[in-house]
Design a protein around this nucleic acid. Sequence first.
DNA 1: ACGTTTGGCGCAAACGTTTGGGTAACTGAG
DNA 2: CTCAGTTACCCAAACGTTTGCGCCAAACGT
Lengths: 341, 341
Amino acid sequence: MIADQLGLHVSTVSRVLHAKPGEGLRAASSPTVERVRKLADELGYQRNPHAMSLRTQRSNLIGVLVPRLSDVVLATIYEGIEEAAAEQGLSTFVTNTRDLPDVQRARTEMVLGRRVDGMIFGDAHADTGFLDEVAARGVPFTLVNRRAGRHPAVVCDDRLGGRMAAEHLLELGHEEVAIVAGEPYASTGIDRTSGFVERFREAGLRIPEHRIVHSRFDARGGHEGAERLLATGPLPSALFVVNDFGAIGTIGALRDHGLRVGADIAVVGFNDTPLAAELPVPLTSVRSPMHEMGRRGLHQLVRVLEGEQGETELLRPELIVRASSDPELYAALTRTTTDRG
Amino acid sequence: MIADQLGLHVSTVSRVLHAKPGEGLRAASSPTVERVRKLADELGYQRNPHAMSLRTQRSNLIGVLVPRLSDVVLATIYEGIEEAAAEQGLSTFVTNTRDLPDVQRARTEMVLGRRVDGMIFGDAHADTGFLDEVAARGVPFTLVNRRAGRHPAVVCDDRLGGRMAAEHLLELGHEEVAIVAGEPYASTGIDRTSGFVERFREAGLRIPEHRIVHSRFDARGGHEGAERLLATGPLPSALFVVNDFGAIGTIGALRDHGLRVGADIAVVGFNDTPLAAELPVPLTSVRSPMHEMGRRGLHQLVRVLEGEQGETELLRPELIVRASSDPELYAALTRTTTDRG
DNA sequence: ACGTTTGGCGCAAACGTTTGGGTAACTGAG
DNA sequence: CTCAGTTACCCAAACGTTTGCGCCAAACGT
């Protein structure tokens, strides 16, 4: 270390530069402290993180696993994680697992091999086997986006969100509804669906099995899900799709079948992605605080790293009503259109 | 290191486990090699990357800067980077800069402080001052998504892409066109715009200044850009929007003005994001190979790290025609709709 | 004047690798 | 039997920190 150009020992310099205010009081005399600080930033000194990690057995690295970053929901959550991590002086490592168990395992090992201090999983599967193993190995982690078992998680109150969607459609008088429920292993889809179904049941309406289809979370998946729904039985009057991208695909499928969203059939999505508002027929959606979820996830992990017991947090969703489900808004929309055309 | 349970010296073990086939031939006798290998994976031994980085001055880490990961274009490019990096045994660090110069600087320092071996910038600004500085400091890097100055980059042939869009609209007989050109500092927007303008000029048609507006790259930005366009002068018959998200926002604005995309006005986007095909009126878009761009960007960086001279690569775009610009496809679309309604 | 505290710093070990330079033991040729 | 050449290892330094311990001198108390 070049900072013993000052004729000081490296240990002294180390103490001056990095001792926490609480402990390192007897580090050096204030003139020395000044000299060290001065030279340090003249030289643009930055401590070598590898040496530090090696010595302290702490890397200040967090590993993050997500199904895919090209899903704007996960990307936004990750942005929150990264932002909060940077504030704490932590760096994050993120990788895609495409929701494939083998990849999840392999990437987890890889990330652990990098000696991260802790992990955040955004791709938890309802079958908790893998996470249980990881926990058993003593790896500190939290979940975001999806919950699983009793592992600490920060998620949207998806069940409530599902209920909100249901409530909304019930108020509008819909009775024949269907659900594009996402992947069967994701708590998001599961909880949103069950909240929705529950609320309908409370209203005395059963949603039959064949009206609930599973699908991938991307646009293509939503499209295919809707196709399957449209292939069987009479048309529902409303569709609840558990994520916005899926909803967009669904809308594509409806369009292919000559159905006008908002007029012939109501659609409600989930997440309130920025696109929802911009669609030709704006999409009603249950907003989930994605960015905030990421931030809180990171904070929760930090607490776990400090030895506290992680506690699952449920974030409040909010229903944003737009023309895809609301007849009045839809009317307003077509009014301007026909004004002109 | 526990692998001297075998009574071997750590250096021997190190050679056995990590010597490249070329050099480490005289590492150990084959029985010893066996014993070491066996114990290593019984113990699940993983070499400590910090110790290794410290010793070798190489971290096998790559820093990646992007404007924002919640832009699906950048997220997809990053997926390519990450995939290729993993194949090479490299890990990547990604962070958002929101295209703010201050943040770019700060994050670059932070990433460099982590002692990455090289960097990939996905957020280059046309003003190359900052990148020139970084290059002058001897930091190995490449650009993806946007090019800048003479720095090695892997980008879509954006100018060609712009020309393709123009060609398409010219064939359809459009003469009054406008452009939502994205941020003025991004080569993507600049090149796509100039290719488009150039092709029109070749056809003897000038696109006036006020028909070219800049905007943010998100949906909201496209919306605002279109608003400004619609506020001034007579309506163009076609709109070229330099990115799909912007195009979606644009479509939202057109909708607000009572214009039917595909009928009253043609819209062409860029990137062919998965959503383009699923929109109620499917969006004509110039496809850019985003995933591949990420992969090649990483490979290019690897070559630079090996001491080669980086060479800019232009990837070929492809025009995907859909109903938002093609009258026949649009007619087909409404035909199914009216069949039913 | 003489022990005792304490402020200010140096010492050295340790973290887990890599790597250039040994050095014993064995092999085979002369 | 000697000697060069291998083979199969070991040694130790170095990478840049952190941290418990120890030492010296000055300040302090009596």
